[in-house]
Amino acid sequence: MNFQISKEPIDIQSVIDKVVQRNAGAITTFIGTVRELTKGKKTLFLIYDAYEAMAVKKLEQIGREIEERWEGAQVAITHRVGRLDITDIAVVIAVSTPHRADAYEANRYAIERIKEIVPIWKKEHWEDGEEWMGNQLETVAYPSGKPEEDDLNE
């Protein structure tokens, strides 16, 4: 169960423990947290929702992509859903690899891919309203109905 969607607060250590391996020289951990200010606008809290079954599959896919690109890598990702307050942890990514450079690179790859292909959405709640956010700037359109190869291979 290296790839999970959680309704409960994420225990960081338990995610790290999943990638401990004798061949690792490094484990990198990414912890995504809820920020209060975005472009000067104050967030009160967030609601995350997921298409859970597909989200787990897409997290697993990201894990496979990393194992193919960085030899000896092991990956674990847990993403939270539900209501999150400022400073709460939304996502934890742990990557172990034989050498440290790969662990940093692969971990960065994982978070960028989550933002592209994993069906999870956040709803921002501000003092003056609320809105579902889509790829932050809503700059990406999918005219063919799904991400293009280029989007998926970046």
């Binding site: 599959k57 933002k115 109905g145």
Partner: peptide
């Protein structure tokens, strides 16, 4: 998505398929 995998607009829906409309994602 058709049965939890991204699908093209020209994919034909089969009986029993689960279809999901997926707005731009904003996880992470």
């Amino acid at each position: 998505a058709v049965n939890e995998e991204f699908a093209q607009d020209d994919e034909v829906i089969q009986d029993g398929d689960e279809i999901a409309f997926i707005p731009p994602v904003s996880g992470g």
